[in-house]
């Protein structure tokens, strides 16, 4: 893996090392010794796994989920892989494209850089939670009307960002919309149509 840079200590951590280190930490100070032994001997993965997981209560689109997850799971992967809510997209996984934008307690954030464990007790809204039944959210309808997408992959992120953009009061003119939508990349290049869609929703007024 590491040809140019022989001694990169940070990467080599097995379960065993993790648990050895963990013994010093308060959170697992109460870990029964047989579990540590099991981990040490690499014997019982199932038991050891339990101690790598944490409880999480999270409300997604109005439904409360009680889960047990590894702390390293991102909100995006939790949504897509565990809750099967694949509307939130993975476009880069590094906070550089905006495709994974969701609302956490009403604020737009990037779910790929959010650890799921840190969202305990919070309310998440994804693209799947935007429409009211069969009735599209005005922003969704405006995106269709103005053809604010081509392949559609960045679209959920664009729409979640656009809804927040209007709610924040950052959609007063086209330049402001562009600035506050700059974190959502569209490789197909639907930008002008997206700006038109947001402008229309903003101008129609009302609560969205």
């Amino acid at each position: 893996m590491n040809d140019n840079n022989k001694d990169d200590k940070t990467l080599n951590h097995s379960r065993r090392q993790f648990f050895k280190i963990s013994t010093a930490l308060t959170a697992v100070a109460l870990t029964p010794s047989y579990i540590l032994k099991a981990a040490d001997d690499n014997m019982d993965d199932k038991i050891a796994e339990l101690f790598e997981k944490r409880d999480l209560n999270i409300e997604v689109n109005g439904i409360v989920h009680t889960l047990s997850i590894e702390p390293r799971v991102t909100l995006l992967d939790l949504l897509r892989e565990q809750l099967k809510l694949t509307g939130s997209k993975k476009g880069c996984d590094h906070g550089q494209c905006g495709a994974c934008t969701v609302h956490v307690n009403g604020q737009r954030v990037l779910s790929c850089l959010s650890l799921a464990i840190m969202q305990d007790g919070k309310k998440i809204t994804t693209i799947e939670g935007l429409a009211k039944g069969d009735e599209l959210h005005p922003m969704q309808a405006a995106f269709i009307k103005h053809d604010g997408f081509q392949c559609g992959y960045c679209t959920p992120g664009q729409i979640m960002s656009a809804v927040a953009c209007v709610r924040e009061g950052h959609a007063n003119n086209e330049d402001e919309i562009r600035s506050y939508m700059a974190g959502n990349i569209c490789r197909c290049g639907a930008y002008p149509n997206i700006v038109d869609a947001i402008t229309e929703v903003k101008q129609k007024g009302g609560t969205i």
């Binding site: 993975k90 309808a141 009307k145 053809d147 559609g152």
Partner: peptide
Amino acid sequence: EDGDRVNGKDIVTGKAKYTAEHD
């Protein structure tokens, strides 16, 4: 009628399944 994309609703609601999204 309006020239809207025929798959638009699936896209804007997040229902459209791209490759990695099939359950």
